[in-house]
């Protein structure tokens, strides 16, 4: 059964809420995937060059699968590529956390750690209410496990290294702390998503689980980090950052150079 036929069973408010939720999740995966792919060729060591490229490839694959579900749900003639590439920078709905550029290696690891753990809490919140999403998420979670192990190994390494490595990592966490909770901001129409069983728990509950996961990692490393729930309206920035505008220019450049080209 296609996403379109299954979607026809949902009432209008639920479809609207689901479309918003899918777009936010797809944009998150797309933006961090593209941003991390910037390390290809220039990561600190060869193994990390390979790892970051592989992780980025996973994330872009997740984004594509989510955009495909969204395309079926919207059924407005746009395919996954059109959804991914044919929007102005202001129309992307990625979380504020991902409006921060990749920065240096410590910033990249801090961003990955905060995003991977928050995304895991979000994925764990998906219920069985809409089978196409539940099935995809079951598959994605198996892959994300590797991303989490990678991020945690680096958090440990940087934090225990002391000196400049630890200082840069802690500074990066501090810089991101305010925006990190945006990944788990309450989505529009959450009540409808909960009612339909598309979400099994609220994003507020996911936030609590995430905050305790993060504390469980950072406390033994003696890194205090205050995370406060994001205000509902604060998931994405109305005016995207310069970092994101630059990234948008990069990831849309081929598409814009020859609209509609295939190969």
């Amino acid at each position: 059964m296609t996403a379109t036929t299954i979607a026809s069973a949902l009432d209008a408010p639920t479809r609207t809420a689901l479309a918003g939720f899918l777009l936010a999740m797809a944009d998150d995966e797309f933006v961090i995937g593209f941003s991390d792919s910037e390390w290809t060729g220039i990561a600190p060591i060869l193994e990390e060059d390979v790892a970051m490229s592989s992780i980025a490839q996973d994330e872009l694959g997740h984004a594509r699968a989510l955009y495909e579900l969204l395309a079926g749900l919207l059924d407005d003639g746009r395919d996954a590529d059109a959804l991914a590439y044919d929007r102005e920078p202001e129309a992307y709905r990625h979380a504020r956390l991902l409006d921060h550029g990749r920065g240096d290696w410590a910033m990249t690891i801090a961003r990955r750690f905060l995003y991977d753990t928050a995304d895991a809490a979000r994925l764990a919140s998906i219920g069985a209410g809409w089978p196409p999403l539940a099935e995809l998420v079951a598959k994605i979670r198996r892959e994300e496990r590797y991303h989490a192990m990678h991020a945690l190994a680096w958090v440990d390494r940087l934090a225990r290294a002391g000196g400049e490595a630890r200082a840069r990592f802690v500074a990066a966490l501090d810089e991101l702390a305010r925006d990190a909770p945006s990944v788990l901001a309450t989505p529009g129409g959450e009540a409808a998503l909960l009612e339909a069983g598309i979400l099994g728990r609220s994003m507020a509950a996911a936030f609590d689980a995430w905050r305790s996961d993060v504390a469980g990692v950072l406390r033994p490393l003696m890194i205090p980090l205050a995370l406060e729930p994001a205000a509902d309206a604060a998931r994405h920035r109305a005016a995207p950052s310069d970092d994101f505008r630059w990234l948008w220019g990069e990831f849309t450049s081929v598409r814009r150079s020859e609209p509609g080209a295939t190969w």
Partner: peptide, 13 residues
């Protein structure tokens, strides 16, 4: 294990 990630998504080093 050198790395969880290898030259393709399904392989490690």
């Amino acid at each position: 294990r050198d790395s969880y990630f290898g030259p393709t998504q399904c392989r490690s080093l």
